[in-house]
Amino acid sequence: MMTLNKTRFAAGLAAITLMLLVTACAGPESGKADASGKVDYTKMSAKELGEYLIFESNSFRLDMPTQEGTTARERMMQDDLQMLCSQTRNQPSPEQAGRIIAEARASMKYPEGGIQLGDWQRGGNLAWGGFGFRLADQSDDHSRRAADGACYNCHALSPQRTGGSLGPSLTGYGKSRGDSEATRRFIYEMIYNPHAYFPCTNMPRMGYKGVLNEQAIADIMAYLLHPDSPVNK
């Protein structure tokens, strides 16, 4: 699937570049040229046009340096999962969903000493912080500190503060689920790559994409599971 998509993408991009070169040369008149049959950009799919517009029309500052040491161009390039979920509007077919789940499972990397809980207080700071990976003039400086989890944007966590509601409420999570081996494994995998359970979920792949490291995941897990954490009070 990976190879196939890449090839198709490359071929598509080449075709788009060629077609848009023609369009660009036709200039403002290309709308008319289209009617006369010379340039038919309307035959191009919206996706192909969109890809061209992102990478070739100077719409984005693609040369911005990123925290992960690449340029912003890489951030705009979709991986297979992003492409498939975008195309299907997050509603993959059963067959596609099966593939996504299998690939997500294969992507999992576990801590060497097993899945342990970290420090729930540190985890709380990570869960309620939004630092990390933002670009623009005051780009987040990761040499100063690591990225937060920004969990609160989408999840209700501790009852004292209001979190978002894009994802399910996690208030009282440890109290209701307990702290078994299976629970730990599930939470770890949900944070690392949630598509193993919910193909094309809106939740980011915090571990797989390197947003959170092992220690940060362990700390956030402690914040969710530890009986002393405000989440479970």
Partner: peptide
């Protein structure tokens, strides 16, 4: 419309 639904970046958004 396509861009509105196009997921990318570190948070798949």
């Amino acid at each position: 419309e396509t861009l509105f639904h196009r997921r990318s970046g570190p948070l798949d958004m």
